[in-house]
Design a protein around this nucleic acid. Structure first.
Length: 287
DNA sequence: CACTTGACCTGTCCGC
DNA sequence: TGCGGACAGGTCAAGT
């Protein structure tokens, strides 16, 4: 669920809300999702001030002036929600999916000196947070292997196509979801961009032409940029840093629209199982 | 090495 | 209404 556009939306929100705040306490209820020792917390987190909020692929990076970075992966149902006087009781209650915090899915709470708090909620407990020395973040296995950022200005259609070379014998959808090929693509934007490029998700990478790769590259970037503009996709429980929903699902062309008319040709949209995932496509105009 | 499947979890929905 | 099972889908480990 949280894919690149959702994580980027959270990052932008947190950038405005928590940079400059000093942590005074930390609590957690899920040791697996918080592997740091109490000693590490006391030494590198308590008393430290947030200097920046960065993102790489679907990973959020909270930098502290202690020289440590809190690396966070939301996985499927993770949420990072800020509560403070700035937004408490304001905002847009109709857009909110999150009630009073903490609640039963709160895993980690950071309290800041001004009394505001950051809650890491995760219904399914797949997500995690871990402190690393900032200079070692790039040496983490995931960071070493993850592919290029699809929205970077200097990423080209040619470079995009080249990344798929070593996955020639698998399907284009499985390859798109492979984080070592390109960073940040998940199930929603894989289906949406393949529809945009008129490519059947099941087609083998080797059967995709250079021209189609160029189109797919363009569609993927367009879809992700639109999704960021709309604050991401709230399918089930994704929310931004203020606990509010994103509206990209109102603009989705195939995702979660099985049975509805394809906006391009009018045929009914199919939902199949492919690459271990629910997969949405228009069999009439994707080939 | 390339590729696929199962595990990690819990809440929701569907059929009996 | 209650209950079992399928399903949701990001990533890694284990298996083919």
């Amino acid at each position: 669920m949280p894919e690149l556009p959702e994580v980027e939306t959270v990052r932008r929100g947190l950038q405005l809300l928590i940079v400059g705040k000093q942590v005074i306490s930390e609590t957690h209820d899920w040791p697996k999702g918080w592997p740091n020792s109490d000693d590490d917390v006391a030494q590198f987190l308590l008393g430290a001030t947030i200097t920046a909020v960065r993102r790489r692929a679907k990973v959020l990076l909270l930098d502290f002036d202690s020289g440590y970075t809190l690396v966070t992966h939301l996985k499927m149902t993770g949420q990072l929600v800020y509560r403070g006087d700035e937004v408490f009781g304001a905002g847009h209650p109709n857009d909110s999916l999150v009630g009073p915090l903490p609640d039963r899915s709160t895993r980690v709470t950071l309290e800041f000196r001004d009394g505001s708090k950051l809650f890491f909620n995760d219904q399914r407990k797949f997500g995690w947070m871990k402190l690393y020395p900032t200079i070692e973040v790039e040496t983490i296995d995931f960071m070493q292997k993850v592919g290029p950022e699809p929205l970077e200005d200097d990423f080209t259609a040619e470079a995009f196509r080249e990344r798929f070379r070593r996955r020639a014998r698998t399907s284009i959808k499985a390859a798109l979801l492979d984080q070592t090929v390109v960073a940040g693509v998940g199930n929603i934007y894989a289906d949406e961009s393949l529809w945009g490029a008129r490519i059947d998700p099941r087609r083998l990478v080797a059967q995709v032409s250079d021209q189609e790769f160029a189109l797919l590259f363009h569609e993927l970037r367009a879809v992700m940029n639109l999704a960021i503009e709309k604050g991401g996709s709230t399918d089930r429980n994704y929310v931004d840093a203020e606990g509010k929903k994103g509206s990209y699902m109102d603009f989705a062309r195939v995702f979660r629209r099985e049975g509805q008319a394809c906006p391009r040709c009018g045929a009914a949209i199919d939902k199949i199982k492919h690459a271990g995932r629910g997969t949405h496509l228009c069999a009439q105009c994707q080939s």
